[in-house]
Simulated assay, not measured.
Amino acid sequence: MALKKTSFEKADFALRLLTFVALVAGGAWAAYQYKLTGADDWTNNMTVDAKVLPYHDDLRLLVVHVRSKNPRNTTFELESKSHDSYSLTVRKIAADAKVGTVFHEDAGDVIAKVDLLDEASGDYEFLPGAEMDDMQTIVLPAGITVVLTADMEIHNGTTDENGKPDSDSISVSTVARVEP
């Protein structure tokens, strides 16, 4: 004799089926979002700013802060053995430019270059949400204007179309005037 299903049993089955569908849809959505956001790729929010302090005679101290923050919930690491790099470059801007001249951040005479990765003993780990502040002090002559550029490059373990190691990079720049 076949038992007739009650309304309660039908509702229970429908709820179980909806729960299963919701779990599958939620899992698919999470996987899609994970892939869409770069899965376990890295990113870093960097800023660079400077302050000029008196030193002696016609020399000034340029105090540079390179601040970086890992906004992701994954750790990434820069390793010198993997040919990653993290540097600060100071370039002098020409003082005799004409109106309308555009100075690119990689133009000008290099006054100083600091390997920030080397300063960290060759390895630099950025934990999830970590904020770092790398400070450097550089002696400069008074009366010049400089471009400060912080570069971070990480090799991602793949090769490009030419078979050379592929890398991703982030760069940030600012201009500072070293007043007399």
Score class of each variant (00 low, 15 high):
Met1Glu: 15
Lys5Gln: 12
Ser7Asp: 12
Phe8Pro: 00
Phe8Asp: 10
Ala11Val: 15
Ala11Lys: 14
Asp12Ser: 13
Phe13Val: 13
Ala14Trp: 07
Leu15Gln: 06
Arg16Thr: 08
Thr19Leu: 11
Thr19His: 00
Val21Pro: 03
Ala22Gln: 06
Ala22Arg: 03
Ala25Leu: 11
Gly26Lys: 03
Gly26Cys: 13
Trp29Cys: 04
Tyr34Gly: 05
Ala39Leu: 09
Asp41Ser: 13
Thr43Trp: 03
Met46Asp: 08
Asp49Glu: 13
Leu53Cys: 00
Leu53Arg: 11
Asp58Gly: 00
Leu59Met: 11
Arg60Trp: 01
Arg60Pro: 01
Leu61Asp: 06
Val64Leu: 03
Val66Cys: 02
Ser68Gly: 14
Lys69Trp: 03
Phe76Ser: 09
Glu77Trp: 00
Glu77Lys: 14
Glu79His: 08
His83Thr: 12
Asp84Val: 10
Asp84Gln: 09
Val90Pro: 06
Arg91Tyr: 05
Thr101Pro: 01
Val102Ser: 11
Phe103Cys: 04
His104Trp: 10
His104Asn: 15
Glu105Leu: 09
Ala107His: 10
Gly108Trp: 02
Gly108Ser: 08
Leu117Gln: 09
Asp118Asn: 14
Tyr124Asn: 13
Phe126His: 14
Pro128Leu: 10
Gln136Tyr: 02
Val139Thr: 15
Pro141Thr: 00
Pro141Gln: 03
Gly143Leu: 05
Val146Met: 04
Leu148Thr: 07
Thr149Arg: 15
Thr159Phe: 06
Lys164Asp: 14
Pro165Trp: 06
Ser167Arg: 11
Ser169Ile: 13
Val175Asp: 02
Pro180Val: 06
